[in-house]
């Protein structure tokens, strides 16, 4: 089995409760004052009452092209053949923080020793665990469900081999993923059109940084009537 594993996120089902961050920290015995492997960001926009707040839960996406792995001088970061997970060999890490710059998701964190650690999709428990472990198994085969997935109140976070996650995603999300949305690193559901009461300008989340920044600028830069619905479709 050599299929890439990946994450899935549905902003429509995320209630922004941060249970994923806490579950992650507790699974991996991470102190509260350390940077989180999984973060929830609340994006705000608009003025009351034309206001929206969108929660976005993120961690390492175990990118197929793993930019962090490419820049890591001591090859401490490994993009695993067997399951596509990106793990860290902390016995090689020199703590240069180059990976943090390369990562589009802010996933690498550094402990007091200065060594990098990040999400390992619960292949192991604790910083650096997972490296060199046998391939990731599905829960039905005895694998550990990622803690964030297991504890997501709204089942907004999913993880699994690409084909399975795609099968569970909506048709739109799967199609967008195939067309290279979010650099095909994560599947994200489009925002429901009818959510966010009274908001005609439908929100659209893009968990992506590597799209050319210019793409994020509304045409003409003067979209003052709020009709910015489709300028960033991921």
């Amino acid at each position: 089995m050599s299929e890439q594993w990946m994450f899935y996120f549905d902003p429509n089902r995320c209630i922004g409760c941060h249970a994923c961050s806490i579950a992650c920290n507790q699974r991996h015995d991470r102190d509260a004052d350390e940077d989180d492997w999984r973060t929830v960001t609340h994006l705000e926009r608009g003025e009351y009452p034309d206001f929206q707040e969108l929660p976005v839960s993120m961690s390492c996406m175990h990118c197929h092209d793993a930019p962090c792995e490419q820049v890591c001088p001591p090859d401490a970061i490994v993009k695993r053949e067997e399951d596509g997970l990106v793990t860290v060999n902390r016995d090689r890490c020199i703590g240069c923080h180059y990976c943090a710059w390369a990562c589009p998701y802010g996933a690498p964190t550094y402990d007091d020793e200065g060594l990098m650690s990040k999400c390992n999709m619960c292949l192991g428990e604790g910083p650096g665990s997972g490296h060199g472990k046998p391939p990731k198994q599905k829960p039905e085969d005895g694998g550990l469900k990622p803690s964030c997935v297991d504890n997501c109140v709204g089942e907004a976070i999913k993880a699994g081999p690409v084909s399975e996650v795609m099968a569970e995603a909506s048709e739109t999300a799967a199609r967008r993923f195939e067309n290279g949305a979010y650099n095909s690193r994560v599947i994200v559901e489009p925002m429901d059109e009818d959510s966010a009461a009274g908001m005609d300008d439908v929100a659209d989340a893009s968990i992506d940084a590597n799209d050319e920044g210019a793409a994020a600028v509304p045409a003409g830069g003067s979209d003052a009537d709020g009709g910015a619905s489709d300028w960033l479709n991921g």
């Binding site: 090859d75 090689r92 550094y110």
Partner: peptide
């Protein structure tokens, strides 16, 4: 700035990623 200086000093052994 590095966390583990000796690994940098042993760069012929540790720094193996020549695309970095």
């Amino acid at each position: 700035h590095l966390a583990v200086v000796y690994r940098a000093l042993l760069f012929p052994i540790y720094l193996t990623n020549f695309s970095s």
